[in-house]
Amino acid sequence: MTPRENAMAVYNREQPDYYGDLMDAIVLLPDPVLMGDLPPQDGKIHPDSWGVPYEWKPGAPGPHPYITPENVVVKDIENWDRYVKVPSLENLDWGPAQKVAEGVDRKEKFVGIMFGGGLFERSHFLLGMENALMDYLEYPDEMKELLSVIKDYKIAYIRQMTEKVHPDIIFYHDDWGSKQNVFLPPTVWRDIIKPLQQEISDAIHDCGMIYMHHADCICQPLVTDMVDLGIDIWQGVIAQNDIVKIQQITEGKLAMVGGVDGPAIDIDGISEEAIRQEVRRAFDEYCPAGRFYPSIPNGVCFREWNNKIYRDELEKYGRRYAQEHPVT
């Protein structure tokens, strides 16, 4: 099987050659919005296309918003439209993405686009986390207006990326929680975010793409809603969720990627066997229900030796598990 065929076998509950990280079967394109918003790794503050200040410190794995009361974009949610300038999607340079896409054999692998800054994330990027959480509770109508504008931008971009490179999978990012719980009360999330997310999901599927939602956090209170939305794959499932219970309550309708407790094995002084044991645990606990791709939710161990052991066990045990547990 090709990596793509093997991934689809797991997705369709057919016999794969091996189990493992779905991301290994996807080639992510350097799309122009993502690359244009990527700040230099110089430790200085740089605004993204929405005007949100970002900082990428030398040695850090990635950039992060650096929001203060002085530089926050939206200073008053009741007058949000005075502050928000929606980025233009005209004249984007799709050349690099098209070149990569043309070099992918789509029988071998999927073509994907990483689509960051979902509705919730973009809202707290613009408002600051504390203000956003309060505004969701105190100003729901204004938040709906703001998120509706963000939603329209995202749908327009989804349609443009379809025209330019037609990805197989959209890797949509929106962390809805922490390692302890969801950020918003589920009733608030369902009232404000869910209807708009439904429009985004519909646009993804209308364009013929698989909707893979990244959220490496607790999403357990929202998983039946994720099924309602038509999310095809949840990538980033951390072990702090009760994954077995989620598989039961979603009745297998939500394929999942993750389960290996990355922070638990990405530490100094851990033994090789402890790393391998954690990888095997994820296979043994979550694969029996099907439609599960064991992996570290954020993709890698940042320590080179730890990652080497993790990847070795993922490959070896993934093949062994497939052989010893045939799909009937």
Rank of each mutant, 00 (worst) to 15 (best):
D93H: 07
M129H: 09
N79A: 11
A132L: 02
K164R: 10
I158A: 03
K194M: 10
F110I: 03
M161K: 06
P140F: 04
K151L: 08
E138I: 07
E102L: 15
I77H: 01
I192M: 04
N79V: 02
K85R: 08
K144M: 11
P167S: 07
Y157G: 02
D174R: 10
W176P: 04
Q180G: 10
Q160E: 11
E145K: 15
L133Q: 08
E108V: 04
Y83C: 00
Q180M: 13
I158S: 03
D175C: 07
R106D: 05
A156N: 12
F120A: 04
V84P: 00
D76C: 06
P63M: 10
R159N: 10
K164A: 05
P87R: 03
K151A: 12
H64N: 15
D174M: 07
G95R: 15
L92Y: 11
I170P: 02
G112T: 01
I67P: 01
Y153G: 01
V104P: 03
Q197G: 08
L127H: 06
K107S: 13
D191E: 11
L137G: 04
H64S: 15
S178G: 10
D135A: 09
A156R: 13
H173Q: 15
R190Q: 10
K99A: 15
I170T: 07
K107W: 12
W94G: 08
M134T: 06
R122F: 01
M143N: 00
E78W: 08
Q98I: 14
L119I: 07
F115W: 05
G95D: 14
T187I: 13
G112D: 01
V86H: 01
I155D: 02
V86T: 10
E142S: 11
V86C: 02
K164H: 04
S148A: 12
N91M: 09
P195Y: 01
Q197L: 12
P63N: 12
R106L: 05
F110E: 00
K154M: 12
P63A: 09
V74W: 03
P69Y: 10
E108W: 06
